[in-house]
Amino acid sequence: MTEASVVHIFLSRGRFSSFEDIRDYVDEGWSENGDAEPSVFMGEAGIAKLEPMCVEVIHAQDDGHRAPVVPEVLLREASYADQWLPQVKSTEPADAAICVFAPNVVTNPHGTSLHYLGRFTYRA
């Protein structure tokens, strides 16, 4: 039997104008010397080393929605959503989300400038 994995969900409403805007907030940058520089999100959430393939960014306009929607709608296409989305009880509308999956470790989830929805379990 596989061990339960964890996903951390962060929501936003009105902060990001596009998918590229939210990616700029999440993705590592590079110095002039070619060294990786942590993103604003990595610093706020306390992610020491980011595994970018295990972070999903969702922007409602990219899904064809023009206005904020409830998490159940916004997050339904995220990985393993069939397992963890039923655990989400929030109906707060949002137009962007960040899903941080293991092996990423989030040490300061409430330190971000986003709404931290919570940590949810699933089986990979």
Rank of each mutant, 00 (worst) to 15 (best):
I58G: 01
G111H: 01
A94F: 04
A45I: 02
A4E: 03
S17L: 11
L50R: 00
P52V: 05
H65T: 07
S12F: 00
F10Y: 05
N104Q: 12
M42K: 06
G34L: 03
H110F: 08
H59S: 15
T2P: 14
D82G: 11
F120S: 03
V55I: 14
P103K: 03
W84G: 00
T91R: 09
D63V: 14
L74E: 00
H8W: 10
Y80K: 09
H65Q: 11
R15A: 04
T112Y: 00
V6D: 06
K89S: 11
L11E: 06
E20Y: 08
G43P: 11
S5L: 15
A102Q: 12
N33E: 15
P52K: 01
R23V: 02
G14M: 01
H115I: 08
F120R: 00
V69D: 00
V7L: 09
V88W: 10
T2S: 12
P71F: 07
S39E: 07
Y122M: 00
L114K: 00
D35Q: 01
D63I: 08
V106F: 12
G46F: 13
D27T: 06
S90M: 03
L114R: 00
E37V: 12
K89L: 15
A48S: 09
R13M: 10
F19P: 04
A4G: 02
F16E: 03
E72R: 13
V88F: 14
S5Q: 07
E28H: 14
N104K: 02
A124S: 11
T112W: 01
E3T: 13
Y25T: 13
R23D: 00
D95G: 01
L75M: 06
D21T: 15
E32V: 12
